[in-house]
């Protein structure tokens, strides 16, 4: 049969092979597509944003970062967990506050405030950050990440963490901090994101 194939036999053979490839491609695509969506798309958020109360802003001295530990609820996959979290809160002026996420933007180590040098120092690879979160030295690729911040009736409230590289008000190198989603006041001239008392309206 292979030696002297008739033309119609050849046509049929070609049809069979084309159908085999075609149908298996369809099956492959019909499985790969939902599987990729299932694995790569983030879960649909069903939890309302939670804002944590950190108390009166008067407790924070101006210009001195303070480490605040608080408890918040977080949805972790299928569980709602209550966990401790930390923020480095700095009151920039009377009514302006920033709160940094406690991890270095290089590899996620916990950093601390170096009182003598007046900067944030990461002990892992010696990245340093200014009071406004900007990278001063070291391998950190971007400024410190920030919590969404609101001030309502002189009380400080923290929302979720916004990565500094996802902020819209970045200068040309895209590395300086910008406005938090919760702030209507946007960015001050020196690039620091500030949140004033006028930013009390809910944004989402």
């Amino acid at each position: 049969m292979e030696d002297h194939p008739k033309p119609e036999a050849m046509d049929r053979r070609r049809f069979y092979i084309a159908a085999i490839y075609g149908l298996w491609s369809l099956i492959g695509a019909a499985l790969a597509l939902p599987a990729s969506i299932y694995l790569f798309l983030p879960p649909s958020a069903r939890q309302k944003e939670e804002w944590v109360d950190l108390g009166e802003i008067a407790q924070f001295p101006v210009g001195v970062p303070e480490e605040k530990v608080f408890r918040h609820n977080r949805k972790d996959g299928w569980r709602m967990i209550s966990e401790k979290a930390t923020a480095w809160v700095t009151r920039m002026t009377d009514q302006e506050v920033v709160a940094f996420a406690p991890q270095c933007t290089h590899l996620g180590c916990a950093y601390h405030w170096d009182e003598q040098k007046q900067n944030f120092l990461c002990p892992c690879h010696a990245s340093t950050f200014g009071l406004d979160g900007r990278v001063l030295t070291g391998p950190a690729p971007r400024p410190l990440d920030r919590y969404e911040v609101r001030i309502e009736k002189n009380k400080l409230r923290l929302g979720s963490i916004i990565l500094s590289n996802s902020l819209s008000h970045s200068p040309q190198n895209g590395a300086r901090p910008g406005a938090e989603a919760g702030c209507s006041s946007g960015v001050s001239r020196d690039g620091t994101a500030l949140c004033g008392p006028e930013s009390t309206q809910e944004t989402g």
């Binding site: 939902p34 599987a35 969506i37 299932y38 798309l41 879960p43 649909s44 069903r46 996959g77 299928w78």
Partner: peptide, 15 residues
């Protein structure tokens, strides 16, 4: 977790 798969993950119900 099964409920999570079915309600919160896109494509989870189909899988």
């Amino acid at each position: 977790s099964v409920r999570y798969i079915m309600t919160e993950l896109t494509g989870g119900r189909l899988i």
